[in-house]
Structures are given as C-alpha cells and as structure tokens.
Write a protein that binds this DNA or RNA. Structure first.
Lengths: 208, 208
DNA sequence: AGCAACATACCAAATGGTCGGTATTAAAAA
DNA sequence: TTTTTAATACCGACCATTTGGTATGTTGCT
C-alpha cells in the first residue's frame, strides 16, 4: 500500500503542476487533490520541491522520453510514421489519469519543463541532450534515405531534420495555446501527420 | 512625471513576469525591481493582477504584434525575408531594457502568454485571432506565389503556410529551452533563416 | 507491544493589500 | 506678496490570510 499512496500523490501532483506550474500549485492544492492530509504527504516527501523533482523525473522518464531509441529507422517514411504514433501514445497516458470535470483545463507540458529547467540545474542538460539525440536520429535516418534514393535533395540532413522537429514542436505549442483537451488533441494530431507527409513529398520530388 | 513612473513600473514588471511568470513574481519583487515602495505601486495600480494585465497588453500591443499587417507581400521570397526581419526587431526591443547582471536569466515570452491565457479570458481569443490572421496572410502570399509560378507544388496553401509558421514557432521554443540570451538569440535566428530558405527552395523545385 | 501509515493542530514567514502620513508644488485667498 | 489650501506623488508601518513545513497525536495491523 505504501508505494500505492506515493504513486497516487505523484500522479495527482503531476496533473496539478501541468495545469498551473510549480508556483501556481500550493500544498493545500496537493492535499485536496490527493484527498489526503499534510501528514500523509510529508510522510512520503520531504518538501514540495522534492515531489516536483520526482514528478519531473516520472514525467520525463515515463512519458516524454518513451522509447527514444526504439523507433523504426528502416526508412524515412517509416520513421515519420513511427514518430507520429509515439506522439499519439504519449497523449493516451494522460487519458488514463481520469481528470475530474473541474480539472478540464489543458495540461501544459511546458509548465513542467520551464520550471524544471529553472529549478533543477541538471534538467536542462538532460533535456538538451535528449533533444540532441533526437536530432542525430533524424539525421541518421535522413542520410540513409538520401543514400537509398528514397529522397533526393540538395538540402543538408541537419536542415531537413530540424524542419521536421521544429514543425512538430511548433504544432504542439499551437495545440496548447488553443487549449485543446485530450480528445481534441488526438484529432488535431492528424493534421500534423499531413504536414509531415507534405514535407516528405517535397523531399521526394526535390529535383535539385 | 506621473506617466513616467507608471511606465517604469510597467517595464520592470514586464521583465519580471517574463523571467518568472505571474505566480513567481511577488509584490516585493516588483517594489524591489522598481526601487519604489508599495505605496507608489498601489497609487498607479489596483492590484498585482491589474499590472499583469496592463503588462500583457503592453507586451502584446507593442512587441508581439508589431506591424502584423505591414509585411511585404509582393512575393513569397520577400514575405519570408520580411517575417524574419520583423522577428529580429522584436528582439531588439528587449535589448533596450538594459537588464542588470542579476537579471541575466532568459526572458520567456511563454510565461506571459500562458498566464495571460489562463487568467485573462479575452486574451486567448485575441491571441488566436492574431494567429489566424497570420495564417491567412501566409495563405494569401502562397496562393499568389502559385499563380505567378514563383513556386510550383501540389501541396495546399494551408499546408505550406502551417509549415512555415510551425517551423518558426518550434524554432523559437527551442531558443528559450536552450536559455539563450538576447545576443545569442539574434545569432541563432540566422539558422531559422536558412531553414525557411530551405523550405522555400523545396517549394520552388517541387515538380509535382 | 510496536511500528507503519496516516491525521490534526499548530507555526513562522511570506503573501497581496491597506491606510494614515508627508514632501513638494501650485493654485487660490488674504 | 504672503499665506492658505489642495492636490499629486510617494512612503512605510501594519493587516489578515496563505504559504510551506513541523510536532504530536491516533489508528490499525502484525
């Protein structure tokens, strides 16, 4: 039961931090959301900051960074599809958190990321490294696609890789700014798919 | 002198909110940064929330949304360049705020935008409308570029427009996450230029 | 009995905000 | 011309509430 309660606090806190950011969430919010008391909370955690750090690691380890090395890299086409699928799965995790009606505000991952970057010195490094790995992965796949003539283009692999990545990031940010809920987000994600396919088509047709 | 002091408070508060978000900034932070007292602050503002709202309107009206209808739309090429130039100018505004050494943390416009969206009901509408206008502008320019054969592609104008916009957004987010300061940002912006040029080249060469 | 797993009452500090006061200036009254 | 009035622009002690956190229970299970 011990680990259950701690996990319960972690998950409820995650949602709160995603809704309002570190400074927007008070200890009272946490004990209310968990339906426990301060005694229970401080039995499992030393401070508000500590639960935040554990939340960040939980979020980052289990959601943000899932399978960062398990993509289908056999072709650029497959890679694009796979990136897209994984993004989809990431959203599904949140659907399981069965938010109550009064928790309908959108979950903003950047609340977590910004706070983590400014309050957890090690996090920025980890985050940027992950970003770099992602970029290298894209470049590898694109290089291969060039060799196999899957695409023909004079643009550098780095340029193309960044196009795909930034497109995804900008799209994600747009979703948050529109305050879409989870199901709406999953709907919208299909638009991202068509954008990525569009870019892919351009690369295929690029004469020189 | 009256308006001067109020403007002084506005500008100092803007920097604070950009650094730490609404909840991360206390009234003490504000009076310290402005080098005034609470008496002075509450002489010009009714509440912390009010200065935030005025800061948002100031930021949005004078910085984010500058000249949203004054772009060079004579060709897609020119439009791209112009969009890029305006982005550059936006950064310059912040350089004038002569931040002190202890204020060297990066200014994160999303702190302001997220808080504004969740606390100022009217803001989301305004923001999304501005986004929509931007999209329509891109579409118009792209449609014209298709007609004049500046570019030849089977992709829809909306698809292309979103590619450009999301690329820019994602790039901007990346800058913030890397915690670049203003001069570094201006350096990096040139990378965005090459990405936009790359996409432009792809569109030019798109056989069908 | 003894410990794990919580609950509850409490605390100092920080929070956003108020209110009576004051220095400076300028217009109005003498 | 001098004095009074009055308004602006600002100060800083003070306030109720909330903050994150603690110390001392209480409960149930082995």
């Amino acid at each position: 039961m011990a680990k259950d309660t701690k996990q319960h606090i972690l998950e409820k806190s995650l949602v709160l931090f995603l809704q309002k950011g570190y400074n927007g969430v008070s200890m009272n919010d946490i004990v209310k959301a968990t339906e426990m008391t301060k005694g229970a909370f401080y039995y499992y955690f030393d401070s508000k900051m500590q639960v935040f750090e554990e939340v960040v690691n939980y979020f980052y380890g289990n959601i943000l960074d899932i399978g960062h090395n398990e993509y289908d890299t056999s072709s650029l086409k497959n890679f694009c599809n796979d990136i897209f699928e994984k993004q989809f799965k990431r959203l599904q995790i949140f659907e399981k958190q069965n938010l109550k009606p009064n928790e309908k505000q959108s979950l903003n991952q950047y609340f977590l990321i910004f706070d983590a970057i400014s309050q957890m010195p090690t996090f920025r490094k980890k985050f940027n490294e992950s970003d770099q790995r992602q970029l290298e992965l894209w470049k590898k796949v694109i290089n291969r696609a060039k060799k196999t003539k899957e695409i023909t283009t004079t643009l550098s692999s780095e340029q193309i890789a960044k196009m795909f990545m930034y497109m995804g990031d900008g799209f994600g940010m747009g979703l948050i700014l529109m305050n879409k809920n989870m199901t709406e987000m999953k709907q919208s994600l299909k638009n991202l798919k068509s954008l990525m396919d569009g870019l892919y088509q351009l690369l295929k047709n690029d004469a020189n």
